[in-house]
Amino acid sequence: MPYLINGNSGKAPAGPADEGGFTGWSLVGADHVTSGEQAAARQRPWQGGPDWVSVQTRAHVDALEIDAPPVLGTGSRTRVTATVTQGARSVPVGFPLAADWTGSPNVHIGDRDDARHRHTAVLDPSTGTLTALRPGTITLAVTVNGTTQKVQIRIGAAGAASTA
């Protein structure tokens, strides 16, 4: 890793929140690479090597909020967002700010095509799109720097109230 550009941790951000201006810190991780993995990477560099360095940008969190509708109709799609509050500043949760989206067992986090029959809804965290597949109640959660916020959403029959 030749260098890491890090955000502010002891003073006000230099830019607006929607352009990455927030306070926080970075967690750098390095995993052990075996001698076999090292040799394979040297012999076949075009295949790429093991993913051994990672960086998480951890925002300072005074408060965390999820914006999602309480009810969504089957077959409907809506956008789910999260916001971190830092003093008077509201920061949208998204790159470069590290966040983990999770859900109840009946929620698939990821691509819609990978959902199974047991899944009531699908959340694509890269776009924030929540797709209601069948009736039921789901829980979505987002964690930013150790702070977690949860929301419950009822998936009703097609045509149920929605804020999509």
Rank of each mutant, 00 (worst) to 15 (best):
S26F: 10
S26W: 07
V28C: 03
G29D: 12
A30L: 13
D31W: 08
D31F: 07
H32Q: 09
V33P: 03
T34C: 03
S35W: 06
G36I: 01
Q38G: 04
A39Y: 06
A40Q: 11
A41I: 00
A41F: 10
A41L: 02
Q47F: 05
Q47A: 09
Q47G: 01
Q47L: 14
G48D: 05
G48L: 03
P50S: 14
D51T: 01
S54P: 00
V55M: 08
T57S: 12
T57L: 05
R58K: 13
H60M: 05
H60Q: 09
V61E: 01
D62F: 06
D62Y: 05
D62R: 02
D62I: 05
A63H: 04
L64Y: 07
E65Y: 01
E65R: 14
I66Y: 02
I66C: 08
D67Q: 12
A68K: 10
A68D: 08
A68N: 11
A68H: 11
L72H: 06
L72I: 15
L72V: 15
T74M: 14
T74C: 12
G75P: 03
R77H: 11
T78L: 02
R79V: 15
R79Y: 02
V80I: 12
A82L: 09
V84M: 05
T85F: 01
T85C: 00
Q86C: 02
G87F: 08
A88N: 08
P92K: 11
G94L: 02
G94Q: 13
L97Y: 06
A98I: 00
D100R: 14
W101G: 03
W101A: 03
